[in-house]
Design a protein around this nucleic acid. Structure first.
Lengths: 263, 263
DNA sequence: ATGTCCGTTCGGTATTGCCGAACAGTGTTC
DNA sequence: GAACACTGTTCGGCAATACCGAACGGACAT
């Protein structure tokens, strides 16, 4: 349920809320009555909104006992948005490459003002598909990509972001203080890659590195994620260098150059 | 520009048309004035609609000289819709598997009343990414999956679909008459897989097979696509059997059983 | 300095999207 | 089998509200 800002069109906002509502519903879909109650709208109004969304393919309807489900247009738009995103489209084959080499799940994030937004994912073979949504702003201190991106910013801005996002813990190993974050960031700057050692989820590790665009500013980060079984220090280092190397490949593909220490 | 049906909400329809308009625009994005002219809306109205779409993440705006681009929510919704689709989510690893084995681009389509709608794609390594959009209804007679799906229907229904969709040609080898289509369909039924030999695009071949759900009805099809270099008959047969086998794997994964010749 | 483009803001009008009630199916319960 | 309790669908009427057009202000070019 999003807050409306100035110059917002009510019915459109309600319609998009319905899409969100339905995509977060159980797999069998929802009935009109359920939707109408849960979103506190009138029957006829939500009916009209749902109809409109169906006309555009945003929703579809199951055959007997009409239940509403996500429609094909969402897949279409997601695919097109991904294809039109220079970062996502350029790096898809590079992600695949890294996933094959490491056997891990590989993801790429766009830098959204210091926050990582994952936009593409390649699952490792037989990987436990642990759920990682795309297209949402993530907390920067909790993932390796997040820290890799933060490391490219001036210290002052890192502190500011840490303050506004809050250093919430997800596991006992999560970073929760600014000072700890800064020591880790320093390590990232030396190594060139960031490590998330069970800071986001228990038993899961993650190694990430940043890449840059033509202006030399950090465009995003790439990371490899896996289960933490016999994770020796040298293995991490080897993986880190590999991830870093692939980040450099993306930088080149973007026509970018490695960070011009602008700070 | 979609036609409106009964009980449609105008402003929502207009907003979704804007999304479509922007996602089919050049990579740099569009300005408000351009959008307003091309969609024949007033400046302030389209401004409000765009604002609403931005609030929900469907669009984003570039920093200087505001231009409108597809937003992260589209990627988010596409990913969720794909994850919530039983066919797409179950078969992702199977697609990957087939793509690695063959080195080809592999796609999967849902059966939408006889028409194929591709919902997932795994590009082969170093593949010429020839553009294949997801989430749109395709012509059934022009692709191998389309024909594989058609082959599961009673002849009468095939003729009906052929008539209503029209047998448009894309290459000199395209099937354009119902009788030719039916002879090809007969072959598909014998072999278990369908072949598209440069019928969709010159120099491109494609092999597809159907899979089934728990009720025994055709849920969709899977296909492997590649460039037509030295395509010997035995190679096609080998590939066809491999694709067919993977279709069977999907059928099993869906808890389905192979077509109970209900006709 | 004048021009033209852009995006943003704002008030007034009538369009139109919302409501509520009535209708029509479907299956469940007694 | 009839009553009920649910569904989804349709429709008329009122008022909210989404649209329009005009005015403002900033950025460039001419």
């Amino acid at each position: 349920m999003l807050e409306k800002s100035a110059y917002s069109v009510g019915s459109v906002s309600r319609a998009l809320n319905l899409v969100d509502h339905i995509i977060n519903a159980p797999h069998e879909g929802l009935t009109l009555s359920e939707i109408m109650r849960e979103t506190k709208g009138s029957k006829s109004a939500t009916f009209a909104l749902l109809r409109t969304l169906i006309d555009h393919g945003y929703l579809r309807i199951t055959e007997p006992g009409p239940r509403y489900l996500p429609g094909m247009a969402l897949i279409r738009l997601g695919d097109l948005a991904s294809a039109r995103d220079p970062i996502a489209s350029i790096s898809r084959s590079i992600l695949n490459d890294l996933s094959v080499k490491t056997g891990l799940t590989v993801r790429i994030a766009r830098n959204d003002n210091g926050y990582p937004v994952f936009i593409e994912r390649v699952d490792g073979p037989g990987m436990v598909r642990f759920f990682t949504p795309l297209g949402v702003r993530e907390l920067p201190h909790i993932s390796s990509v997040g820290k890799a991106i933060l490391a490219q910013l001036p210290n002052e801005q890192i502190r500011q972001i840490a303050e506004e996002s809050g250093l919430a813990a997800r596991t006992p190993k999560s970073i929760t203080t600014v000072s700890k974050l800064m020591t880790d960031i320093r390590k990232v700057r030396v190594r060139g890659y960031a490590v998330d050692d069970e800071e986001d989820a228990q038993g899961v590790f993650c190694v990430g590195a940043a890449f840059f665009d033509h202006s030399g500013s950090c465009a995003g980060g790439i990371s490899a994620t896996g289960i933490k079984t016999d994770l020796s220090a040298e293995k991490v280092e080897k993986l880190g260098k590999l991830v870093f190397k692939h980040a450099e490949i993306i930088t080149k593909a973007l026509g970018g150059r490695t960070k011009s220490r602008s700070q």
